[in-house]
Each structure stands twice: as C-alpha cells, then as structure tokens.
Simulated scan of single mutants.
Amino acid sequence: MIELPGDLPVVERTAVRLVVRDARGHILLFHTRDPEHPRLGTWWELPGGGVDPGETYTETALRELREETGFVVTVDRLGPPSWRRRASFVHRQRRHLQDEVVMTVRLDAVAPDVDGADRLDYEVEDYFGFRWWPVGEVVAGRDRFYPGRLPELLTPFLTGDRIDEPFELWS
C-alpha cells in the first residue's frame, strides 16, 4: 500500500503522457510551474492529461495533444502505451494520485510552434514555455523533469522496452 502525505485532498485519475518527437527526433517538453506552490520551482514535463470518462488511451492522447499543442495527428502517428507508471504530485491545492501510460507521437515537421489556444485556464498559467530537446540532452539533463525518471527511462522507452515504473512521489 502506498503511503501518501496527508497534506491535501487526494484526487485519483488515469492519465496519458506523450513523448512528442519531431522530424529530427527531438522531444517536446513544457516549461512548467504551479503558481499556487512556488516552493516547487519550475520543471520540464511531458504533455498529457487525464482520461475523460469513456475515453481510450488513444482518444485521450489525440485530444490532449490538440488541446495542449494545437497538433492534430492521426492514430497511426501514435506508439503503444508501453510505459506504465503510478505517481503522486501536488497541483492546485490537491494531491493527485495517477495511473499513467506514456505513448509516443511522431510529427513530420521540425520543431513546430506550439499553439496553446485550446488549453485549459490552469494550463495557460502553468505552462510558460516549451522546448524541443535532443534526446541526449534530456538523458544528460540536470533540470527537473516530470516524470522524474525521464532522463533514465527515455532511451529504453524509445528503443521499444516495456517499462513498468515503480511508484513515484514527485511532490
């Protein structure tokens, strides 16, 4: 059984995270903060979000990609949900407990601009930048990432390994 801090009300959900790769193989990460928890500082995170009732992982991936980036892709651009994880983090006065899958998305363009016009209000406040990272820079990165083990697990994930990551208490 996972022991969570008793700091905030807990919200449990299922989510999809996306490793979005451009034509060069660079990875899209959002520079993120939580204005309600400045102690957390800033970090780089994979796009993604919660699965709505009745949605499949694929439907969530396509919707979240469109909402957070403006990219519209077809199902054949998605990889399988082969990285599974459970994590907890603080966000907006709640403690999230999430079962997540991570999928790849392949784009034809090189470093396309992100269009956040369809983002939710809190995403507009939280995401204050983005960057297309070479995989090697993520792997060697000293920045803070979400998922926290992204630098360690990115290469095995991209080479096709199935990953069942243990629980991460991120914040």
Rank of each mutant, 00 (worst) to 15 (best):
D118P: 01
E100K: 00
Y57I: 10
R92M: 09
G49D: 00
P112F: 07
R95N: 03
G160S: 02
Y146I: 04
T155L: 13
D76F: 07
P80Y: 07
E64V: 03
L46C: 13
V124F: 05
I2W: 09
V114K: 13
E152S: 12
P35C: 02
R131H: 15
A117Q: 14
G79F: 08
V114E: 14
F128W: 09
F128N: 04
R84S: 15
V110P: 04
L40P: 00
T58F: 01
P81D: 06
P80M: 06
D164P: 00
E68H: 06
T56S: 15
E100M: 05
G129S: 05
Q98C: 11
G6H: 11
P147V: 07
Q98H: 07
G48K: 11
E165S: 10
E100W: 00
W44D: 06
M1L: 01
Y122A: 00
D113A: 15
G25H: 11
F145Q: 02
W170T: 12
T60A: 11
D7L: 05
V10N: 09
E152P: 11
L107F: 14
S82L: 14
F145G: 02
R92S: 10
R21S: 10
A109E: 15
D161E: 14
R92W: 08
Y57L: 14
V110M: 05
H91E: 14
E137N: 09
R63C: 05
V138I: 12
G136T: 03
Y127P: 00
P147T: 08
R85D: 06
W83I: 14
R144P: 01
P134M: 04
L154A: 01
V10P: 06
V139G: 07
E68G: 07
L78F: 11
D161G: 02
V51E: 01
F157V: 04
F157K: 02
G136L: 04
F71K: 09
V105R: 00
H37V: 13
L158N: 04
S82T: 15
P112L: 08
V105Y: 00
E125W: 03
R17H: 14
L4K: 08
A109M: 11
M103Y: 03
W83D: 14
L120Q: 06
D118F: 13
D52V: 02
V90C: 03
F89G: 02
R84V: 13
V135P: 12
L65N: 08
V102T: 14
L154V: 01
V110K: 09
L29Q: 07
L120V: 04
D118K: 12
A109V: 13
W170L: 13
G50V: 10
E125M: 06
T32E: 09
V138Y: 01
H96G: 07
D52P: 00
R149I: 00
R162H: 12
W133R: 06
